[in-house]
């Protein structure tokens, strides 16, 4: 009664809010590099130098780069053979689970890919090879229905030399 109640809310909450902030931010902290989006020039111009290349961690962890890789995966027609319905050696998820290739291996196999129609050596710019490799590596963690759901959203996107038209 001696002191008006109104003083409390101006002074008390600071400590409390700080505490809550710290508690709350713990799960989000490790996520911050995963979510970052670096736009503009200055992307990698060279293939991975080895297993310890620090760029590998960045590309594998970064969701934006991985998603870009997914986009080019469809644009370059990779999905025609290696799509959700692929089986056997073309099923990139199964292959990865069986042989657990490293990022460098995946990168090299895309860069020197000898597909039905053409090889990719020198055709796909380095930056996109990084993104594609990151995407292919990320497929292990992607559930099949999640991949199918993404394909549904991207059903109107062109695939290499064919485009089935806009989403209907």
């Amino acid at each position: 009664m001696a002191e008006p109640m109104e003083r409390h809310w101006l002074q008390m909450p600071c400590r409390h809010i700080l505490l809550a902030c710290m508690l709350f931010s713990m799960p989000t902290l490790p996520a911050c590099s995963r979510e970052s989006r670096s736009l503009g020039p200055g992307q990698p111009q060279t293939p991975p130098s080895g297993f310890a290349d620090p760029r590998i961690t960045y590309f594998e962890d970064n969701l934006y780069q991985t998603a870009q890789g997914g986009r080019y995966f469809s644009w370059y027609g990779c999905a025609a053979c290696h799509g959700t319905e692929a089986r056997g050696e073309r099923d990139l998820i199964a292959v990865q689970l069986r042989h657990s290739p490293s990022f460098v291996d995946v990168y090299a196999s895309i860069a020197h890919h000898r597909g039905v129609s053409f090889g990719h050596d020198g055709m796909i710019p380095t930056e996109q090879l990084w993104q594609l490799a990151a995407y292919v590596r990320s497929l292990r963690a992607l559930k099949r229905e999640q991949r199918r759901r993404q394909d549904l959203d991207q059903a109107g996107e062109p695939q290499a030399m064919s485009w089935s038209g806009t989403v209907r």
């Binding site: 979510e35 969701l63 759901r149």
Partner: peptide, 13 residues
């Protein structure tokens, strides 16, 4: 959506 859907908006934003 679809801009905010799973394909065009990766991550948790």
């Amino acid at each position: 959506p679809p801009l905010s859907g799973p394909a065009y908006s990766p991550g948790h934003r």
